[in-house]
Design a protein around this nucleic acid. Structure first.
Length: 487
RNA sequence: GGCGCAUUCGUCUAGGGGUCUAGGACGUCGCCCUCUCACGGCGGGAACACGGGUUCGAAUCCCGUAUGCGCUACCA
């Protein structure tokens, strides 16, 4: 099949501000942006904040921040759906005037009873059109009597068909929907009314949204038609699942942009990873920038089946981005982690050196910063496994003391002289260099892995190296006990 | 319950009737590199849900079954 979508498009992302921006929402936004990037056109941001109980201004702000951070750019908006409610009601009234909708006086209680009855007999409930053909005089009389009513759409009795870019031709029987409500008894428009009205007014050409809307679409299509508007092309994206194959939940860790940001994921990595969850370029490319993605994006390659969110792969991808970026590129994202680690006052040059040294070894920004605090602290925790091993070697404190003294004599405190010094001490004491190397690493960094030792020592500096070794020797002599503080 | 959607290695995926003894990536295991860890390189193990068709030939098309998920509001 050739390219399904050509020419300029008008797409929209329409989240409801109900808290953090969920990864499912991010992916929907990304595919909207990608289609817009590929085809040209306009990407509209619309905040569906009509459920006032759950929405507020701060949440709306938060969605924009989360999108911006991820690197998603929209061309128009944000439009607030709540500000367009009068327009929606006005359009619904047009339908009522044209007899494409009608007033329904049935009470919630009556409908509840009918619904319960229908379900008891194993069927699904559809509004039985009790008020569909009410006499005009009767309507007038009831309004006069002060009875409230809702406005219902006169749903067609024909099959409803539409095209979905992900699933192909869709065909729903008339029973799939009923005469759903357009206007509530207080006159406010329902979601279906608002969405369709906005999509028409904003001349949306392609509706890309989550699969949970698929069964809403048979309601929307005849509504577009009732207004004589062009029906947009749909693309219903499959859901994102957790490791348990159920809807992704907090139980398995971060699920929102804000949380990934706080964990130290780079926005480029999140964008890249999310865009590949349900879509692929068709070749072996995996590390793809937003720009490249926009160039090669093709709706035809969107997947129809749900995808499990794989944290491990996101982490891998993040480490790829951390490794291939320059420190300057990463630096702006590091601030909050530096604050968290108490390194805001750290010497910038020293900080840069050690961050560079550890950059390729961390999977997240947080890990990176954590791995570097040892350069700025005298007291550091030692890796349990490593210290257990070194405590067993009773000669070690003496070896390390000799090494500390030798390091203190090294004039040019650089990689090569340091290595020569350590090897000399090892030879004098009749042990292999590695017998000194590994505990020294633990003494300085606390870890049992990390950068090449002599890079580590050189970056640490003479005084700090001496202090760290001193602390570790004392720690070993105490048999691993915590230091005794006096006063 | 009804309606709908989906089903290729543990996970993300390639695959559009023969080129599939099913390719790549993450993870995993082994080896190499090496002062350690990470990177990198090499290699191993690992999948077409099941049953019927259609066809000379099916992972690919059709129908069932199973399983999973979604929807089923005067919520969005």
């Amino acid at each position: 099949m050739a390219t399904l979508v050509t020419g300029p498009v008008r797409v929209r992302f329409a989240p409801s501000p109900t808290g953090f921006l969920h990864v499912g929402g991010v992916r929907t936004a990304i595919y909207n942006e990608l289609l817009r990037l590929h085809c040209g056109g306009v990407f509209v941001l619309r905040i569906e904040d009509t459920d006032k109980a759950r929405s507020d201004e701060a949440m709306t702000r938060q969605i924009q921040d989360a999108l911006s951070w991820t690197g998603i750019r929209w061309d128009e908006g944000p439009f607030l759906q709540s500000e367009r409610l009068p327009r929606h009601a006005e359009r619904a009234a047009e339908l009522l005037a044209a007899d494409k909708a009608y007033r329904c006086f049935c009470t919630t209680e009556e409908l509840e009873a009918q619904r319960a009855e229908a379900q008891k007999h194993g069927g699904s409930f559809r509004y039985p059109r009790t008020c569909a053909h009410m006499d005009p005089d009767e309507i007038a009389r009831r309004i006069e009597a002060g009875q409230t009513f809702v406005v219902r759409f006169r749903a067609p009795d024909a099959n409803i068909t539409f095209f979905d870019l992900v699933r192909g031709d869709m065909d729903f029987p008339p029973e799939a929907i009923d005469d759903f409500i357009l206007l509530r008894s207080d006159g406010s428009p329902t979601y279906h009314m608002s969405v369709v009205c906005d999509d028409i007014d904003m001349t949306i050409t392609h509706v890309i949204r989550g699969e949970d809307h698929l069964s809403n679409t048979p309601k929307h299509v005849p509504l577009f038609q009732a207004f004589g508007a062009a029906v947009p092309t749909f693309a219903h994206l499959p859901l994102i699942l957790g490791p348990d194959k159920k809807r992704l939940s907090k139980r398995f860790g971060a699920t929102s942009v804000e949380e990934f940001r706080a964990e130290g994921i780079l926005p480029e990595a999140l964008y890249n990873y999310m865009s590949l969850l349900g879509w692929s370029p068709g070749d072996d490319r995996e590390i793809v920038s937003r720009e490249e993605m926009g160039r090669i994006f093709d709706v035809d390659r969107l997947n129809a089946s749900a995808a499990v969110f794989d944290r491990e792969k996101l982490l891998w991808m993040n480490s790829q981005y951390m490794g291939s970026s320059t420190l300057d590129q990463i630096r702006p994202h590091l601030d909050s982690f530096l604050v968290e680690a108490g390194l805001t006052g750290a010497d910038p040059a020293r900080l840069s050196t050690v961050l560079e040294l550890h950059r390729s070894r961390a999977r997240t920004l947080r890990e990176l910063v954590q791995s570097v605090v040892c350069y700025f602290r005298d007291e550091i925790p030692y890796d349990a496994e490593a210290s257990k091993k070194f405590l067993a070697d009773l000669d070690l404190p003496v070896h390390l003391a000799a090494l500390r003294d030798r390091f203190a004599e090294v004039e040019a405190f650089g990689k090569d002289p340091l290595e020569a010094a350590l090897r000399a001490v090892a030879e004098e004491r009749g042990v292999k260099p590695s017998v000194l190397i590994h505990p020294t690493r633990t003494a300085l960094s606390g870890a049992n892995g990390g950068p090449p030792l002599f890079d580590l020592v050189a970056a640490m500096g003479k005084d700090e190296t001496s202090r760290h070794l001193g602390h570790f020797i004392a720690y070993l002599r105490r048999g691993g006990a915590l230091p005794e503080h006096q006063d």
